[in-house]
């Protein structure tokens, strides 16, 4: 049984923020996570964000701003995002099923703050910043600081996620996105890895970005390994060495869990594969 006491769908952002300011309403986007939480949950008042014009994708120089209500399907089919944020494009195309992607939104994926949210590791690669709005004003917070823990964020009372600002990938960057699960469709990720790599003219790694979902308590970049790889000549041994360090970090930060005997070798193998795949895309000229 779903418990909804009230359903409001304002058409103006100011009206929505005013209602949110009352502190009684739960914001709704696509509903693919929320409707599940409404079943047998505490009764809630719903404020639907759908009519606030937050389904935009804006191209502005070095950045792309994505409205929080853009669906996974819209992101996955957008040519600008495929070109400039390819890892996000891929991640969005792998969410749930087509039915879920047609309703679920990128903003909902972020705010729900599941440790295995598919789009978050991808967005972290692009230094995503979140534009949060309330009746008191607007603030911008890096995505890396927004998710505090499983299903916990720093979204303040009365605030909604308005949009996400991503820095475009540098031209000729290789990338990979690996989603591990029991099956291909309608799949809750066991682990996600997103990488991007840029090579210098001398064949050494110029820059590299790595983020992981379901590895640490929150989806996060792994700056220690990123720093370690820069300036080095890429090789399988190097990648495996980096992946081993990542596995040690996982155990240190997430603790020894029942899944550790599985996750440790899997992380080592998948991260090695992820970096190799990103590099091979670069060599194959498969980058835009």
């Amino acid at each position: 049984m779903i418990s909804v006491l009230e359903y409001l769908r304002p058409e103006k952002l100011d009206d929505a923020l005013h209602i949110m300011g009352g502190g009684e309403h739960t914001p709704a986007a696509g509903g693919t996570d929320l409707v599940l939480q409404l079943r047998d949950g505490r009764p809630r008042k719903i404020l639907d964000l759908e009519r606030l014009g937050l389904d935009f994708i804006r191209n502005a120089g070095d950045i792309i701003e994505i409205g929080s209500l853009v669906t996974h399907a819209a992101i996955a089919s957008n040519p600008l995002i495929a070109k400039s944020l390819p890892v996000l494009s891929r991640a969005s195309s792998l969410v749930g099923s087509l039915q879920i992607r047609n309703r679920g939104t990128v903003g909902g994926n972020i705010v729900n703050a599941s440790p295995c949210a598919d789009t978050v590791p991808a967005l972290l690669l692009y230094d995503a910043e979140l534009v949060l709005k309330s009746s008191g004003g607007t603030r911008t917070v890096p995505l890396s600081q927004f998710v505090l823990g499983p299903y916990r964020t720093s979204l303040g009372p009365g605030e909604i996620l308005h949009s996400i600002i991503c820095r475009k990938a540098e031209v000729s960057t290789g990338w990979s996105y690996i989603k591990l699960g029991r099956r291909q469709a309608v799949n809750i990720s066991r682990m996600t890895l997103a990488t991007s790599i840029f090579m210098n003219g001398d064949g050494k790694i110029g820059s590299v970005r790595i983020s992981a979902g379901s590895v640490f308590p929150t989806p996060s970049r792994i700056p220690r390994i990123e720093r370690m790889l820069v300036g080095r000549t890429p090789s399988q041994e190097l990648y495996r060495q980096a992946a081993n360090i990542a596995a040690d970090m996982m155990i240190k930060e997430s603790g020894h869990r029942w899944s550790t005997p599985y996750k440790k070798p899997v992380l080592i193998n998948l991260l090695t594969r992820a970096l190799t795949e990103a590099q091979s895309k670069l060599i194959a000229g498969m980058v835009s």
Binding site: G30, T32, V35, E50, S97, Q99, V186
Partner: peptide, 24 residues
């Protein structure tokens, strides 16, 4: 939202009717 038995077409797209609130 996992089995697709409730799939309907909503503004031209396939969606799970079990995950759409009626007021929407």
């Amino acid at each position: 939202g996992e089995c697709g038995a409730c799939t309907v077409i909503f503004n031209g797209e396939a969606v799970n009717a079990c995950l759409v609130l009626a007021p929407q």
